[in-house]
Design a protein around this nucleic acid. Structure first.
Lengths: 339, 339
DNA sequence: TTGTACGCGTTATCAC
DNA sequence: GTGATAACGCGTACAA
């Protein structure tokens, strides 16, 4: 984009190859057949001149940016690497560029979107980065959008991809109750408006119910799906008078880290005194002490799938409105199992 | 970028506001004074029409993409979130876009760069994503580049930002020796060509030397700066005949996770039997059991600084060729300290 | 198979 | 302070 660096244009190539710019363009995008000799000459000149087409000019002419974006809330979370990695692998494979930005609707944004029709061909949105209104507006304007970990706003039908939350959670809690005979299980929920957290809570309740255990609201505490808040929440829970409990299900693994820490500090042994289980199966979860029993959620797969859907949308292909990737429990030691 | 979505152009705004496109442009970039009334009218029309300038057209006219890129090797690492977050905060503040891509020179790339003069105004490069030749070529073409965790290739003077490695490592090992009387300290190094790892090794050696401890090459093992390889390396070390040792310094925290795991599996207690210390101070390091004694390296700061330098470069300002951000040891419990 | 001419949406250079 | 007008570099009818 900088003048001095890539000042060689398609016209230079054309001239030096003794053809018209149009022909070079055709060669570039093989949008029309051209004679072998000419093709070779162009190729030769192109590499001689180290010609690289200007993305901007191309975009302007084509009305396509060949870039897609992903909008996150806070980039600084262990949850994102696999997600972004998954997205990027597809994006790169398609020869597109990936724009990344953070934006948090909580702090009252109403400025222009960092990523939108003005600089991208499509967008993957993570919960909390856009309001429902903004999502809807984008979608209604015909801008390709794929939602992740979030369902389409009321009345709309925007493709969304997330994971099976309830089923695996149900199995996980079943395991705690049936195998380890835990009956007072604390649930550390995520942000109130987080759909995944809500569904995980449903799985938790269902398991309780099936086993004839009464749901105790005093056993529910709120983290924010991150280790620090979860640590605080659990510490506070332990300090104030609290019901007896013999297990903790943290809505995600990151929270489990904070919870385990709080438990350790109070001298509670995991899993002897308290079983702890999470959700996500972060790469590091197997390395915690004790290794965390959790639910494996294909985060990278969500990224890949969302990106693939976005490209389908770009190609005007049909995409299933909602897709749930399968999850499965992984038993390690924090629940009480020996391996 | 998509035709249907944002078809309102500067011309539409101009017409509806009863002025010329030029005036609207001037208002947008306040590149020239305009009368208050006109300004207000334009503002009004702009928000009525929800006008958003086309990035492509702007780029073509300006020869600037208003985007910078960061080139990483593998996106899926806990090390990156703070780094990217730091970069993005500056980028957003400058009203720029952030392009992210991964590329690993190890697998013999020679295709076109995912990010370069064709789609960005500048680039932040992480070790392993570009060969020295590629870096040099970019730089010589006048393309702004900032190196992180890597020094400028032979003979060149490209700005680079990284952290103080040797000094803090030296202090860390001093601590192990002086306070905890450890004398047989294993060093788990990073990738062979990694400059940080090399400098950390220097600090390690210096401390040994000062304390009259002979350097024992059998105590050096190779990880790859990630928990899995480090786990493998340490496990193998423990299984084969190995020298006695009473401490491990892992080149980074991620490796420490794998090492601690391997140690635990063999029934070695940390820190009672073996002290373990790392480098980086990942957000999760304080949450390991035991909490990891390490060196706090300002990863987010490196990202911010690199981005700031890049913007200085874009503004044709001077930038120091090499800057080292300060690090400092943080004592937790894995070394043997009680708090 | 190839060339010509115009348009994409914006900014920059002149005039006024 | 404001308005024409010419780039910017590429794709794409349309014509040949």
């Amino acid at each position: 984009m900088s003048r001095k660096s890539s000042s060689v244009t398609i016209r230079d190539v054309a001239q030096k190859a003794g053809v018209s710019p149009a022909t070079v363009s055709r060669y570039l995008n093989d949008s029309a057949p051209i004679s072998p000799e000419v093709a070779e000459r162009i190729q030769q000149v192109m590499s001689d001149l180290q010609y690289v087409p200007s993305a901007a000019a191309r975009q302007l002419a084509t009305q396509k940016s060949r870039a897609i974006g992903v909008l996150l809330t806070d980039l600084d979370s262990v949850f994102f690497p696999p997600l972004i990695s998954g997205i990027e692998s597809i994006v790169q494979q398609e020869g597109y560029n990936l724009l990344v930005a953070s934006r948090w609707v909580g702090n009252g944004v109403d400025a222009q979107l960092p990523i939108g029709p003005h600089n991208a061909d499509g967008l993957i949105v993570f919960p909390g980065s856009l309001t429902d209104d903004e999502i809807l507006k984008l979608h209604q304007a015909g801008f390709p959008v794929v939602l992740i970990y979030q369902s389409s706003p009321e009345g709309s039908n925007i493709p969304s991809v997330t994971v099976w939350n309830k089923r695996a959670t149900r199995e996980l809690i079943d395991h705690l109750i049936e195998v380890h005979h835990r009956r007072s299980i604390v649930f550390v929920r995520g942000p109130a408006d987080n759909e995944d957290s809500q569904r995980r809570e449903l799985g938790y309740q269902e398991s309780l119910e099936v086993h004839g255990i009464a749901y105790n609201p005093n056993l529910i505490i709120s983290g924010e799906y991150n280790r620090n808040d979860a640590y605080q929440a659990m510490s506070k829970f332990l300090e104030n008078g609290h019901p007896d409990f013999d297990a903790v299900f943290t809505g995600n693994d990151d929270s489990a880290i904070g919870v385990m820490n709080a438990l350790n500090e109070k001298g509670l042994r995991i899993p002897d005194d308290i079983s702890v289980v999470g959700f996500d199966d972060l790469e590091l979860s197997a390395f915690l002490t004790p290794p965390l029993t959790t639910v494996n959620a294909p985060t990278e797969g969500v990224g890949k799938t969302a990106a693939q859907y976005l490209f389908k949308l770009l190609a005007s292909q049909e995409v299933e409105p909602v897709t749930l990737l399968s999850t499965q429990i992984v038993i390690r030691r924090s629940c009480g199992c020996s391996e």
